[in-house]
Design a protein around this nucleic acid. Structure first.
Lengths: 337, 337
DNA sequence: TTGTAGGCGTTATCAC
DNA sequence: GTGATAACGCCTACAA
């Protein structure tokens, strides 16, 4: 009985005589051997059959934010023919400042992945990316800047947000607040200072688009994209003043903002206009239909998956920018005279 | 410069002099070494920091079915303190009948996982489970039978479905059809024959609960839990006859069934009653509110995660059965005289 | 504190 | 068609 014969029997890569095969299988059964150990196999082969997907947030968000679930749907779809599993990873801020992953958390650098998809791209993620690529694993970034040679899948965020702002301006609004996604990995809830650096690309670029139309619009940052956060931020915004319109950077935030407005006795859109971003279905928002930009979330995920597949296949993968489309709902109207 | 010194520097498990550390790091930088290779590390350690989650379905379902997303949310939550990533795996039916995974797909047996959570438990999954446990990786099953010593997280499906059926009976229904989830891995769409074996536990048990009240109710199987499938099945059911009520095994199927009824010019609940199962929010179902059983999906996921954590920690993990609660909506009423 | 040796379980290569 | 052998890259004793 030789090791290599056993290997051959289990992998089926080389013809084996029936007699030998059954002898090997019998021996395996006796010894309680259940086939190759994946860890050893992946070391030897240099492939694990795993694509890592890295989020900057608690993993719960992956499953509760419709934009993300749709994106993941497309990603899973595109990665399937590749025969790879998706490993959900978190870009853990608690590792900040530590020399090297003393944390037990699997992360980009400690997980046995063949490729990585970064959702957003913080500074630290960018550092890790270098390490991952140094090992020869392709990296693709969705909504973020991974550096010069990293395929990048994103939206025309600036343009899209400018479109919405323009819509509000044409309705006659001048007193506008922007309710933003987290500005950086620290995720501080509150007003964004003038001198504050916004490291999260989506947040910064969308804000830039809005400010192209309303240069002086103050911005309030939420900790994450959720209705609850929108509600909390909305309360804070209304406690500080009474804008005629709020530009939210996500539909979930917009939904929360609307609730906050209702709480404060304001009618939408008569007393205050609220716009969203994403074009997802938000539960329980009736009778409102958000005025928002619709983004092709599933396509974005699929494009990322295809880019990964291409890179793993030795082919080149270009960056791709998707276009959002304006959808007029019933949450934006002319301000009251 | 020695290998072990480098190892020590990177792992930080042993005190190292500052001089040595910087010498090592400098050398690493020069050589382009970016830290330990995860594949080799996981072989040596015998741990990969990965928990596999196995679905019987296309991975897209994971992200589009609200019951599943909530469950995953709870699971991610409970697994987080463990510092493990979640690997989404698919129990690929295409491997059926193959001796050993000649497919390139990562599966329970070919993925480097430390533990596995099985969603449902097909016959093949049960076989694979044995292999996984033989390697010492704990397995937990959600909604399925993994065998004698496998912790099992599920619902009082029989009782719950009986409750709904009882409700319909008390309203006066006698002519009832059950719209079921897939009966087995093959997922054939259509009427379930009398002699047909139902291998998927949830499907079988819920059907049993319904038939305790309506012993002769015919059953129609969908291919998956989705509104589209409910619609298709609903059309087929209505083409074959006109029951006074349909017991759907999921809210999504119920939603599809309602659409099919509307298509056929039937009013719900006046002409036909429809009940669901899950208690999730179904988009665009207004003005209906499903009469359904609400299940604690998030808790189910969390319980599974805690069971995994316990087992990885050497502790014992008991099975747990959650209870569903009846929610009266407006989709079930007395049949017309 | 640093260096050396051995093995984790595979699989690829080669000889037979 | 089968068997021996050498890495894959790391980690952990143990010795210096």
């Amino acid at each position: 009985m030789s090791v290599s014969t056993a290997s051959v029997v289990f992998s089926g890569k080389t013809p084996v005589s029936d007699a030998t095969r059954s002898r090997v299988l019998a021996a395996a059964a006796t010894l309680g051997y259940t086939g190759p150990d994946p860890r050893a196999a992946s070391l030897r082969r240099g492939r694990s059959g795993i694509v890592g997907v890295v989020f900057q947030d608690h993993l719960g968000r992956v499953f509760l934010d419709p934009v993300v679930t749709h994106m993941m749907d497309g990603l899973a779809d595109a990665v399937a023919p590749l025969g790879a599993g998706l490993l959900l990873l978190r870009d853990d801020p608690s590792e900040l400042g530590q020399q090297h992953g003393t944390s037990s958390d699997p992360s980009l650098t400690t997980a046995p992945i063949d490729a990585a998809v970064l959702i957003g791209c913080s500074g630290r993620m960018r550092d890790q990316r270098a390490g991952v690529e140094a090992r020869g694993s392709p990296v693709v970034v969705i909504e973020g800047d991974g550096g010069p040679h990293v395929p990048r899948i994103d939206l025309d965020n600036h343009e899209a947000q400018r479109t919405v702002a323009q819509h509000l301006r044409s309705l006659g609004h001048t007193d506008v607040v922007v309710l933003t996604l987290p500005p950086d990995a620290v995720r501080t809830f509150g007003w964004i200072r003038e001198d504050q650096e916004i490291t999260t690309d989506v947040t910064r670029v969308r804000l830039g688009g809005a400010r192209e139309v309303f240069p002086d619009a103050p911005a309030f940052a939420a900790e994450s994209s959720s209705i609850d956060q929108g509600l909390a931020a909305g309360r804070a915004i209304l406690a500080a003043g009474r804008p005629t319109a709020v530009i939210a950077q996500s539909d979930l935030l917009a939904a929360g903002m609307i609730r906050a407005a209702e709480e404060a006795g304001l009618r939408v859109p008569e007393d205050i206009s609220v716009t969203g971003f994403d074009g997802v279905v938000v539960d329980g928002l009736e009778p409102y239909e958000l005025t928002t930009m619709v983004q092709p979330a599933t396509d974005k995920g699929r494009a990322a998956g295809e880019a990964v597949a291409a890179r793993l296949d030795g082919r080149d993968a270009p960056s791709f920018r998707f276009t959002c489309t304006f959808r007029a709902g019933n949450t934006a109207a002319a301000p009251r005279a």
